[in-house]
């Protein structure tokens, strides 16, 4: 289901809870599918004793991937033309994340969205933009 330009207004938002109580197993799953086996994401011993972090943490690309599901649920299948993000805070096992898209403009058949993902404490973990074709 694609969005209708005539029904979109600047400032409209769509948000979804994209993960609740993130499990280490999901991070392992993402390592396996993406091919990024950096021990920082799956190896608690290495990450705490060698790298100096309190625990393993999620791949930024896992957060971008989960946020991408919110976007495609909103704009429709195959409609995205651009999607870019900055990773602003780490995502840890146990985090609950909410992703939001906010309409910034609708012009020439393209909706521009501001994209933000926040954790349970309200900290922004990802911020970026997306563009999609609308009808």
């Amino acid at each position: 289901m694609a969005l209708q330009a005539s029904e979109l207004n600047v400032g409209d938002t769509h948000s979804e809870c994209i993960v609740e109580d993130l499990k280490r197993t999901q991070i392992v799953q993402y390592a396996g599918t993406s091919g990024d086996y950096n021990p920082l994401h799956t190896d608690e011993v290495f990450t705490t004793k060698v790298a100096g972090y309190p625990s393993v943490f999620a791949h930024g690309m896992l957060t971008m991937g989960m946020t991408g599901a919110m976007l495609t649920n909103y704009v429709g299948d195959g409609r995205l033309t651009k999607y870019g993000v900055r990773f602003t805070n780490q995502v840890w096992p146990g985090d609950t994340l909410t992703a939001e898209a906010k309409v910034e403009s609708v012009e020439d058949g393209i909706v521009k969205l501001a994209v933000t993902t926040t954790n349970q404490d309200g900290a922004t973990v990802l911020s970026g933009y997306a563009e999609a074709r609308v009808d």
Binding site: N38, P39, L40, F46, T47, V50, A51, G52, Y53, H59, G60, M61, M64, G78, L80, T81, K82, Y83, G84, V85, R86, F87
Partner: peptide, 20 residues
């Protein structure tokens, strides 16, 4: 020291889709 052994951390990622 930091950033963890594996060549640092991912700061940004951008995609432009010409088709899916």
């Amino acid at each position: 020291g930091g950033g963890g052994g594996g060549g640092g951390l991912h700061a940004e990622q951008h995609f432009e889709y010409h088709r899916h």
